[in-house]
């Protein structure tokens, strides 16, 4: 089976299971609507959903870009300087002990109900995976390469930028792949805590008004956005760093 065919088959199977659960469980429409009403709502409310999807996508992309950039810079600082390592690493680990969810209300308080509190959430949720994946890779340069560089009398800065960083790019890439899946989670949590726009906000709104079809339609769009983002990041990483 070719890849598109496999994806189509898997989608069909998923939809069939969904429909079967609705029919066999005799579930009312306000608990779990079947695929048909959800897709009908997706079509009729497409303008509304698209408007909110653009907001969420913007938050996610900004958060991903800034978080990846910050993670990249932090990992290099940590790898380059033992002082940075001894000072920052405990802080980094401690910051992970605070659930990002718990920070959402504070971020909303500080940054307001607009775009930036959600960007900050997405950034925070991906910062650690990116930093830690890239830092680990930077610290695991194959020893043979390091020894070759030493015999060649490599300058320390050059060693970092010409050898350790490029050698660690696959590690950065795996951090980015994780980030592509985590960043939307951050943005949605941000929207749940306080927002007037975005798919997370739309889902809460639809839930409150018992428009369960719309809620599921927004959820599907969110899932598709996340998958598309992951695929795009994966393809970019593959092309740049061969996996």
């Amino acid at each position: 089976m070719t890849r598109p065919l496999r994806i189509a088959a898997a989608t069909l199977l998923g939809l069939t299971i969904w429909q079967a659960v609705v029919i066999l469980g005799e579930l009312p429409r306000f608990i779990l609507p079947g695929p048909h009403p959800v897709f009908a709502t997706l079509w009729t409310s497409r303008a509304l959903i698209a408007e909110h999807a653009v907001v969420t996508a913007t938050e996610v992309l900004l958060g991903l870009g800034l978080g990846a950039g910050l993670g990249f810079a932090s990992a290099i600082a940590l790898a380059a300087s033992p002082i940075a390592r001894s000072l920052l690493r405990p802080m980094l680990v401690f910051s992970q002990a605070i659930p990002v969810f718990a920070l959402a209300p504070i971020l909303t308080l500080w940054l307001g109900y607009g775009l930036w509190s959600k960007v900050a959430m997405a950034l925070l949720i991906i910062y650690f995976p990116v930093t830690s994946a890239f830092f680990d890779a930077l610290m695991r340069t194959p020893p043979g390469w390091l020894e070759l560089a030493r015999v060649m009398n490599a300058a320390p800065g050059r060693l970092l930028w010409r050898l350790r960083v490029p050698a660690a790019m696959p590690g950065f890439a795996s951090g980015l792949r994780l980030a592509a899946v985590y960043a939307p989670i951050g943005a949605i949590i941000g929207e749940w805590v306080g927002a007037s726009q975005g798919l997370g906000y739309l889902m809460l709104l639809a839930n409150g008004r018992a428009k369960i079809d719309l809620m599921f339609a927004a959820l599907i769009v969110l899932a598709v956005l996340t998958l598309a983002l992951h695929a795009a990041v994966d393809a970019t990483c593959r092309r740049l760093w061969d996996g």
Binding site: P142, L148, A149, N153, R158, L159, M169
Partner: peptide, 19 residues
Amino acid sequence: LLMPWLDVTANVTLGTRLR
């Protein structure tokens, strides 16, 4: 110990690059 991200020429001149 070739660097997979460099082409043959760049690998051959690695020492110059690193110094």
